[in-house]
Structures are given as structure tokens and as C-alpha cells.
């Protein structure tokens, strides 16, 4: 099978999954609350608003008609309106997602910087003290309640030591740079405001670390396992038998092959980070998608719920898709299999 056919097959599968997600969220947000409109609008809603929403979304009609109407609106880019912000859902999402992207990307960088070297050292020093230490550290990453880690770091580094800034993307009183990409790091550089850039970076350190900690653990474990697998291979023994010095054996023959696996799962990890941003953003008052999502979920603001869910599912599925494609390029068995 050639790679184009593989990608097409994967995209069809992705569309299928997205449709499934749509149906499931639709059912969850429409069937379970006994009175969807009441849940959305609250008891004091003006009758003309109820009237309008009823007409637009067909709440008086059977469920499948409502679903078709929803999909129809979706095709026109109409995700409905968010009751809390009174904005179109799509606009709310577009305003907020750069903050999440910035946070998740920082977290990814942290997790790679911590996770990959830890995994390498752990494997090279297998069963030594440092290996045990790193393994406990990486399993703690998986076991860490991120909301708690965030609070503890805030207490130590912001409230007690005062060496890192508190919640938010910028210090209070600072005006964000003019929006180009929505990423403050990049926009501040475009605006030529080095002070804003540094302030943004400082604000990214703690939430980025908190969010990236768990991922660092996974990456360390994965790297360690991959290293050990490669170190067992015959070509590593052969490389030593050829008289290569250990440094060359490690750098050229072990690392090069061992790092393929962690690299291929970066997309997957990124998806996980986007998901984890829900809790982290809550702690650090981060005005991103995660915080928006918890808000609309708690208020059962169903159009916003559907919109956010779909958006996250699309990003998540794309991450998976990209991973699979990268993998197909790297591993000929998948390409030709």
C-alpha cells in the first residue's frame, strides 16, 4: 500500500471518529439534562430569546432533526452562541486557543528537555541508583495531581519566595501586545517589546512546568524503554566488536535509533498536554481554552460545550493523524504492509 492511500484511509477514519464524537456529545448534552433550554438560559430567560433559539435549533422537533439542524449550522461555521460571554462560540474559541497553544508548547519543550535526557541516563545507568531515582521521578509524573502541584509551586515561588510571577499571562497592569498570532511571545517580539516578551516568558515558566511534568515522566519512560530495546540489538554489539569507542557507539548507534520512538509520539503527547491544560489553566487563571471549557461545562452551556468538544477532538485527531503519518514514513513495514 502506498503512503497516499494510507493517509486517505486514516483521514476517513478520523472523519468517522469525529462524527462519533459529535453524536456522543450531542446525546450527552441534549438527553441527560431534563430541560436543555432551561439549563442553557436559566429560569429568567426572556421569552423572545427562547423563541429565537427554539426556531434556530429546533428544540421542539425530534432529536434527529435537531442533530441534522446542528450539523447544518456547523457546515456554515455557525457553532451557536455562548450564553455566558454572549459571543459566537467560534469567536470565543478563536480568542482563547492561542493562549492554550502557547502553554502546551512551553510544556512540551519542558517535558522534552527533562524527559529525554532522563530517559537516556536512566537506560545507560540501568539499575544504578540514578536509574531508580529517575524511574521514581517519572512514575511520580504520571501520579501527580497537576492542580496540587500548581498550587504548591505558586505558594513557594510566588507567595513565599516571590521569584516567579503569579497567575495570568502577564503582570497586572501590562497591556498585551497587539494581536497578530495571539501568542504573546511572538506578538511581543513583533511589536518590538522585549519587556513584554520577558514578562510573558516568566509567566509561562510555572504553568508550563506543571503541565509538562507528567509528560516528562512519560517521555522519560518511553525513552528509557526504547534505549534498552536498541541496546539489546545485534548491531550495537557489532558496533562495539568493530572497535568503536563507547561514545561513538552511544551517540551514533544507540541514540539515533532509540530517539525515533519518542519523536514519533510527540504529537500524541501534545494532544495529552492540550487536554491537561484544563486543570492547569484553572489553577493559573490562564485565559485559554481549558478554562473556557470547564466554565461552559459547569454551566451546561450546551452550544459552547459542543463547540469546544469538537474543536478539541479535531486537534486531538489531527495530532494522532500526524503521528501515524510520521510513523509510516519512518517504519517501512507500515508503509509497505
Amino acid at each position: 500500500m502506498n503512503i497516499a492511500a494510507y493517509i486517505i484511509r486514516r483521514i476517513i477514519f478520523m472523519l468517522f471518529v469525529l462524527l462519533g464524537v459529535l453524536i456522543i456529545t450531542f446525546i450527552v448534552s441534549h438527553v441527560i439534562p431534563a430541560d436543555p433550554i432551561g439549563a442553557i438560559l436559566g429560569p429568567q430567560a426572556p421569552p423572545e430569546l427562547i423563541e429565537k433559539i427554539n426556531r434556530e435549533w429546533g428544540f421542539d422537533k425530534p432529536l434527529y432533526v435537531q442533530f441534522i439542524l446542528y450539523v447544518k449550522n456547523l457546515m456554515h461555521g455557525n457553532l451557536g452562541k455562548c450564553i455566558r460571554t454572549n459571543n459566537p462560540v467560534l469567536k470565543d474559541i478563536i480568542i482563547r486557543y492561542p493562549a492554550t497553544i502557547e502553554l502546551a508548547t512551553t510544556a512540551l519543550i519542558f517535558s522534552l528537555i527533562i524527559g529525554i535526557p532522563s530517559g537516556i541516563i536512566s537506560a545507560l545507568k540501568r539499575n544504578k541508583l540514578i536509574d531508580h531515582f529517575i524511574r521514581i521521578f517519572s512514575i511520580s509524573g504520571l501520579s501527580m495531581p497537576v492542580f496540587w502541584l500548581g498550587l504548591m509551586l505558586l505558594y513557594v515561588f510566588y507567595f513565599r519566595l516571590g521569584i516567579l510571577p503569579g497567575p495570568g499571562r502577564l503582570d497586572l497592569g501590562l497591556t498585551p501586545p497587539p494581536r497578530v498570532t495571539g501568542l504573546y511571545t511572538i506578538d511581543s517580539l513583533i511589536a518590538g517589546r522585549l519587556d513584554l516578551f520577558i514578562n510573558t516568558l516568566r509567566h509561562l515558566i510555572m504553568p508550563g512546568f506543571v503541565l509538562g511534568f507528567g509528560a516528562a515522566g512519560s517521555i522519560a519512560r518511553l525513552t528509557r524503554a526504547s534505549m534498552l530495546e536498541v541496546m539489546r540489538q545485534e548491531y550495537v554489539k557489532a558496533a562495539r566488536a568493530k572497535g568503536l569507542i563507547e561514545r561513538v557507539v552511544i551517540m551514533r548507534h544507540i541514540l539515533r535509533n532509540a530517539l525515533i520512538t519518542p519523536v514519533t509520539v510527540i504529537g500524541l503527547i501534545y494532544g495529552g498536554l492540550l487536554e491537561g491544560s484544563v486543570l492547569t489553566e484553572t489553577i493559573f487563571a490562564w485565559p485559554g481554552l481549558g478554562r473556557y471549557a470547564t466554565g461552559v461545562f459547569l454551566f451546561l452551556d450546551f452550544q459552547a460545550v459542543m463547540g469546544v468538544t469538537l474543536f478539541i477532538a479535531i486537534i486531538y485527531s489531527f495530532a494522532n493523524l500526524i503521528v501515524d503519518i510520521i510513523y509510516a514514513y519512518i517504519d517501512p513495514r507500515i508503509r509497505y504492509g
Partner: peptide, 17 residues
Amino acid sequence: RGRKISMIFQEPIIALN
């Protein structure tokens, strides 16, 4: 290794990187 004593392997394909 390699200078004084060298070695060839059972499965050459997997002994090459």
C-alpha cells in the same frame, strides 16, 4: 577489538545499523 581481534556475526543484516 577491531584492531587485534575482530568478529563477524550470524545474521549480518541485523548486525548492521
